[in-house]
Computed example of a mutant assay.
Amino acid sequence: MGAAGGSGVLLFGVLWVALAGAVTDEPPAHTLAEVLFCQPARPSLGSTFTFDADQLFWFDFPRSRWTPRLPDFPPWPPALETPPQLLRDATFCQSLRRTLTEAVTDITPEAKGIPVADVFPVRPPALGEPNTLVCMVGNIFPPAVEISWQLDGVPVTQGVTHTHYTPTADLAFVRFSYLPVTPAAGDVYTCVITREGDNSSVIAYWVPQNPVPSEVLETALCGAAVVLGILLALLGIAMVLTARRSTHG
């Protein structure tokens, strides 16, 4: 599959393998997918292996090796798809992309997605306690965006890490960026997403809130419950007195 544009062509191939459930009449329970893409922008090549849209491995083309998404994953099975095999596929993809670029440039419209970003902490935030902010960027197409962080308008690079592009079911990509933080009152964290060749950016903000301590919240709730109980008791006494007066009358 591919998308053509005025500046070049993005090509990506998708290999889907459905794993059925115990009963054959049921729809597939899980899906494995391997996606290889090539494009004029950076990165020029990318390949990922996903399970139910969760990335398991990605191929590090500069080092010519499969890399697990998480360090505790088992290594890539050597016999499943060797680096030379994938490099041959990548070379064919680039050759085909150059041929299609020459054929369709300025003829077919360029497909682009507007990235959508969301920033959230890994753990429930607390002022003065270390945490990690996650910037989740979806609807990426083509997979060529830069993600950067700012604190109160000042760029932050210390400890920033990014994930590889992960394909989604709607033929787009998602990417994550992580920033270690120790939030303080008044901080404004910004995740900035820019696309190659564009003058516009997508920005998402996160401002730490000062949550009410749990002890204070429990005390307030207990006090409110006591007051409510007293009011209900007084209301009940008043209704009893009113009923007795009505009976005597």
Rank of each mutant, 00 (worst) to 15 (best):
R42S: 06
A90C: 12
W58L: 05
A117K: 03
E81R: 06
A103L: 13
T163W: 02
F73Q: 11
S95T: 13
F141T: 07
N139H: 09
D152P: 02
P40D: 01
I114Y: 10
D89I: 07
D52C: 11
T99F: 15
Q55P: 13
L87P: 11
Y165D: 07
P84G: 03
E34P: 10
P115F: 13
T50D: 15
V116K: 08
D54Y: 14
K112T: 07
T48F: 15
P74C: 10
P130I: 00
H30N: 11
V104G: 05
R88I: 08
V122F: 12
E146N: 04
P75C: 13
I147R: 00
N131K: 01
A111M: 09
F37V: 11
R42G: 08
V104S: 06
N139I: 08
T99H: 12
Q39V: 05
A53M: 11
Q94W: 07
L87D: 14
P130F: 01
V134R: 02
V116T: 11
P143D: 13
C38N: 03
T163K: 00
R97T: 09
P142E: 14
S95C: 04
P83G: 02
T67G: 02
F49T: 12
D54M: 08
P130R: 00
I107F: 14
A169T: 10
H30L: 07
V154Q: 00
F61L: 13
T105Q: 02
A144Q: 08
S44R: 01
D118W: 10
L127P: 14
L100A: 14
L133V: 00
L36R: 03
A111V: 06
G46Y: 00
L100T: 10
G153N: 01
A126V: 15
P68E: 04
V35F: 11
W76M: 14
T82P: 05
V156I: 12
A144P: 14
K112P: 05
S148E: 01
A126E: 15
R123E: 13
V145N: 03
L80W: 15
P77N: 15
L100G: 09
P84F: 02
V160A: 07
H30V: 09
P143C: 15
T157D: 14
I114V: 12
